[in-house]
Design a protein around this nucleic acid. Structure first.
Lengths: 196, 196
DNA sequence: TTGCAGTTTTAACGAGTGATATACGAGGTA
DNA sequence: TACCTCGTATATCACTCGTTAAAACTGCAA
């Protein structure tokens, strides 16, 4: 590897943005040096000048989007219904997140970064739910981290299945989730079992 | 495309098996004509003689594994604890299923086949849960299809996160799932909300 | 033996990848 | 003015991949 482009370069920022758009519009497999260069009006080698490898570019995109998402999320969680916020934000992010997971499957550097964000977001959600219940003086019917994980799981499965055109049971589950959210807002209970 | 190899060919079956193993061992991205041919001791163009495109090979693998899985599943569901069976079978299949989903993301033919199986499996699960509750004379606390979808979602999320090395909240959620299964076996209730 | 059907290999194309070496231009400096 | 350096951009190489077309090999039957 020879020299590398400056972090502050305009072209560099354009490449990150182009990669981000390509991921959103056509999925991660659409991100190639050729297509990226096309979008910024240069030759494909420019990508390697600024990022060395495509993986490093992905890491840059993930960091940028991760920070943006966290800012939005932390702000939204301060509103009064944290579980509803978790559900809504998960629905917004799941499709995009899945693309990064697909990349992470065969890229150690992206995997490291994504794992970091995943743990962080789950902590943020768990803590928000815990504080909410504490404020209301309700003991958690289920560990908050479980509630957060299940919400994220369902949202992710929806994103995956919608992308593939599977929709059996989705409408019923959406109704159910709405029930869970209402119940949580009324009583603080989320996925309580008959035993607990 | 010229002529195509016979369905009954030995080499053809070897290629399907090689693809299946490659998916299990190294994920769908590891399936290339070169690696497949290496495993059967021939040149890489042999793949196209038998399958035309790699996608067609994936469809063949999916059909073979799908039929096997369905046979196992239908048999297991006849045992007396259908929800536990759903959970266990989902845990066995999720990692493999995710690979096929990744393929389906950019292959229409695989997508069609996978969607068909997904709908079918969800129907089988839903019907098994419905019959179980009916047998026990319990009204569903939640539509059976919702219970099936949530179980599948959590299992899938686990598979995805484990593949990436994310584990926050997994232990707590496994405990919770065990509670849900016990409660279902005792009372027929799964994810009942405070409202219902 | 000849010929044919099924099978396999050779050859080639286009698109993708990472990496290295080189060309270009602006700025400062001797 | 001539030189040098640094940031930027391009050219080119070597490789893998999927795919297609055509040639070569196989065994069997007429």
């Amino acid at each position: 590897m020879a020299r590398k482009g400056a972090q502050s370069s305009e072209v560099r920022a354009q490449l990150v943005e182009a990669a981000n758009q390509l991921i959103r519009e056509h999925g991660c497999h659409a991100v190639t040096a050729g297509r990226l260069a096309e979008r910024v009006g240069l030759k494909r080698q420019i990508v390697h000048y600024y990022f060395g490898t495509i993986d490093e570019l992905f890491v840059a995109v993930l960091q940028q989007e991760g920070e943006k998402a966290r800012a939005r999320f932390v702000q939204a969680l301060d509103a009064d219904q944290p579980l509803r916020t978790c559900w809504e934000q998960a629905n917004n992010a799941s499709a995009h997140l899945l693309e990064f997971m697909a990349i992470a499957m065969h890229s150690e550097s992206v995997k490291r970064e994504l794992t970091r964000y995943a743990d962080e977001f789950r902590d943020i959600q768990t803590e928000a739910l815990r504080r909410y219940l504490e404020r209301r003086g309700v003991a958690p019917s289920v560990p908050p981290v479980v509630t957060a994980l299940i919400m994220a799981s369902i949202s992710q499965a929806f994103a995956l299945e919608e992308a593939l055109g599977i929709s059996k049971g989705h409408a019923e589950t959406l109704d159910y989730i709405e029930e869970v959210l209402s119940a949580f807002e009324a009583t603080g209970k989320s996925f309580a079992t008959a035993q607990s």
